[in-house]
Design a protein around this nucleic acid. Structure first.
Lengths: 302, 302
DNA sequence: CGCGGAGTTGAAGCGTTTCAAACGGGGTGG
DNA sequence: CCACCCCGTTTGAAACGCTTCAACTCCGCG
């Protein structure tokens, strides 16, 4: 408990897990399983019996609008979203809630606190969700987590880092219309990746949260919604959006803070900076820990 | 060059490394070493002989304005910044260069491509830098990387994820002055963490890059610099900045997109959303992979 | 039934963007 | 060695777009 900002009740969340009221409701359509967990994390292979034995996970249920962990907390778990979606929010000193990103099916949550650090943001469920919880203690030990879970963890971490780049790209647009368009297209892509419809989106979040995520005022979000709607690009019903014209929406999303007008006009010169061209590094090892390293040819393997 | 989707010559960067012109210049003040690598990654412990033997790394030199890897590339290396600093840039379709973040001493670079994916952004050196390069092939194998490197990797990854949250926080300010102030304070903190002066900063990047990182026009960056300078908060000499008044700068950085005026006026109510209060999850395991899991009391260990 | 929150829309103010121009430095080439 | 040019930086001025404040509707909930 305690801690910096103090969220006493949450610090005990791990211990509370022992309370274990089983299957509080909703008899799950499919029971949780380690193979499913691994598939969520991006591993296509079927685990061996040894893998199954090595990995221990529990399935938690996170109700709408409840927090999985608080900002500043030290959770003893790493979470993998199994269903639903969560938002990562950081509460700034003046009480403003900055939404840093969304965690959808298959995404990692809470890794930051595993090495002894604290959660940089809280995780709040946007809808009824379920997550797998992996014990940090076991995860920290390379022995206990098998090679398969290890690979899955790396895969999921790499994906998480890519997400950060994607959200940053959303903010690089100037116009608010473009930001919203990018957000919708991004969400659409994520839905498609999860095997759901890429046309019909359920936002599961209010205008305020979208505004925070996109870095604009919530009134502006509302206006941008109607603008895109009036252009016939989307159909909006509060928190349900249908994309009518993908190409048109992509067109709207194109605007950046670069050369304002002529978007695709000057593809001639490869790099914006021309004179002192950026060159690829010719890696020249100044030092190497092992005198004779494996043959370089092997490195070309994909 | 070319490509959007493929970077043929860069894909061979690993092979080029075998060219190995040793110590092209600058006899390094201190030779590279595995202990140093581990320290950079946040491990304080002294490695055992076994650890030293298990880990293989090479030290590369990255010249100013040269790229370590391209966007979309599949590097076979994971990099750890040893000295200097790099920027991560994503080139959008219209040629606009979006700066996603900075990688300073001790930070990880290129992890995204390890699991078989592609780099979401390119890495370009802002100054003369050196990086440790770890072979992805060896890194992927939990056996070959020892427990120590494993822990170091996790630690560094967790830090990297925290950085993403920090940069997002920089963008949450409305006013451009506030964004620049946050950027400078953030940079100052990073410098202090690296053991350097937190007062005197070398930006090593042009206004254009700063503007891209902060999401504003580069002219506005220039104006904000002079504004902060005229207020006596900083002293600016193109790319060298001296912070004169930390508290004043922090004051300037406080402005957010929240309740505009009364920043610290209403600390009464804990959470902004009140009515249907956000509650902590009472984790109720719906399923658990191992029938009888270790006692919950053990989970309380820190 | 009334309250409060969420969403929408309007109007005004202002900050940022954008277009321009000028300055200065650093590099290249004559 | 000097001139020139290119580029980064700074500053100005105008226009646009967003933020902000405000009013209003709709809806769920006590």
């Amino acid at each position: 408990m305690t801690l910096h900002e103090s969220h006493p009740q949450e610090a005990r969340a791990g211990a509370a897990a022992s309370g274990a009221k089983r299957c509080r409701l909703s008899p799950l359509p499919e029971q949780g399983s380690v193979p499913e967990l691994l598939r969520l994390m991006g591993m296509d292979v079927v685990p061996t019996a040894a893998d199954l034995d090595a990995i221990s996970a529990s399935l938690w249920r996170v109700r709408r609008h409840t927090v999985l962990f608080h900002e500043g907390a030290r959770s003893e778990f790493l979470y993998v979203v199994r269903s639903g979606s969560l938002k990562c929010v950081k509460t700034l000193e003046d009480g403003y809630e900055q939404v840093l990103g969304l965690a959808q099916v298959g995404e990692l949550l809470g890794f930051e606190s595993l090495h002894g650090g604290r959660q940089p943001s809280a995780a709040v469920a946007l809808e009824e969700s379920t997550v797998y919880a992996l014990s940090a203690r076991e995860l920290r030990d390379p022995q206990r987590r098998g090679a398969l879970l290890d690979a899955a963890l790396h895969h999921a971490l790499a994906e998480k880092l890519m997400r950060a780049a994607e959200t940053a790209e959303m903010m690089s647009a100037v116009a608010s219309d473009a930001r919203l368009a990018r957000f919708l297209l991004w969400l659409s892509g994520r839905m498609a990746q999860a095997g759901q419809s890429r046309r019909r989106l359920s936002l599961h979040m209010g205008r305020r949260d979208i505004a925070s995520l996109l870095g604009i005022a919530h009134e502006t979000v509302s206006r941008s919604f109607t603008t895109l709607s009036e252009c016939g690009l989307i159909r909006v019903d509060i928190r349900d959006v249908e994309i009518l014209d993908f190409d048109g929406l992509r067109e709207r999303a194109r605007t950046t803070r670069g050369h304002p007008a002529h978007a695709a006009s000057a593809p001639a010169r490869t790099a914006p900076s021309r004179g002192r061209a950026i060159e690829v590094v010719a890696p020249s090892p100044l030092w190497r820990s092992r005198p004779a390293s494996p043959e370089s040819g092997a490195l070309a393997v994909a």
